[in-house]
Amino acid sequence: MRAATASDYLDKMGYTHLPYVVVRHTDTDHDHVHIVAGRFDLDKGKRVPGDWDHYKAEAAARELEVEYGLPLTVSSWYKERKPPTVGMIRHERDTGQPAVKPELQDLIDDVSNQVDSLNEFVDRLEEAGVELHVKPIGETTIGLTYHFKGLYFSASQLGRAYTLNGLRTFRGIASPQDSAAVMDWWEGRQRGQESESTEPELAQVQNEEHGQPESELEPEFPTPAQPASQNQEPTGVDPALKELEVQQRQAQEDEDQKRKAQQRRQRSRQMEL
């Protein structure tokens, strides 16, 4: 089964006509395999592209879980808080200095658990040395970017709980539901003209009639930018890549729909048995 699973995984990743080795490890409590594969397709005579391999790998793993009846897990882009990367862990180990990203996540967690409104949230962040940037992404999505210690992190890079919808859902922070109202509030705040009448109203939980929550519409892939330091993921906003992000986001949504359909078929087969 492990050999078949590894072969199916490579097929889903596009590594079809190339040499590979699968090694099983049982030296830990978690029985697992390692796959070492070439990148040159012997059939096509060219290199297999490796763009977004990390995300392709997670999508492939979710499909295999359904196909082989394995326990289902959650992809990293759906988690409330994204874990530190291997580079961050190595940086902390080698330098003894904490990575900035988890430090920012801890700070936001602490602040968001002590406030009830978006105004208070922004005020407390500024007091702690974090600058929040709010901008529209498309017609229905509001993107948040956190500036901390000279580095920029999009909300989706930190996790679902750090997006605007995530702050409402997971932290209970009141904010306008409508994207235009959010931008009106933000522009008013920027002009220094906010008052009690412009305090964000408590948002109601969005239902299916109003479409997907905004956090699910935010770009799911980190935006490449200028690397800031060894312990951070690439950040930034490149307008030239927005169209690519939209296409990748749509592709991910299509994959999610396929995965859900496969889960339904799997459950139906189990019920028949």
Rank of each mutant, 00 (worst) to 15 (best):
Q190E: 15
D11Y: 11
E245R: 14
E243D: 15
P219W: 10
I35D: 02
P234S: 06
E255K: 13
Q247L: 13
A174Q: 05
D51L: 15
E243Y: 06
S175Q: 15
G69S: 11
Q232A: 15
G96H: 09
A155L: 10
H91V: 04
G138N: 08
I173M: 05
I142E: 02
V134W: 06
P19I: 04
K135Q: 09
L42A: 15
V122G: 00
V21G: 01
D178S: 11
Q193E: 15
E187P: 01
Q105S: 10
Q250L: 15
Q250S: 08
D116C: 06
G211S: 06
G150Q: 10
E201H: 07
S268Y: 07
A181Q: 14
P234R: 11
G166W: 06
S7W: 09
W185S: 01
T95R: 02
E255I: 09
T5P: 00
L167S: 01
A61Y: 04
P200A: 08
R93M: 12
E126M: 02
D29M: 12
Y20R: 14
L241V: 08
P227I: 11
E92A: 14
S268I: 09
S75H: 05
V23M: 10
D254K: 14
A261D: 07
E58N: 03
A251V: 00
K82C: 02
M1A: 13
T26R: 14
E201S: 13
R124S: 10
Q248K: 15
D11N: 12
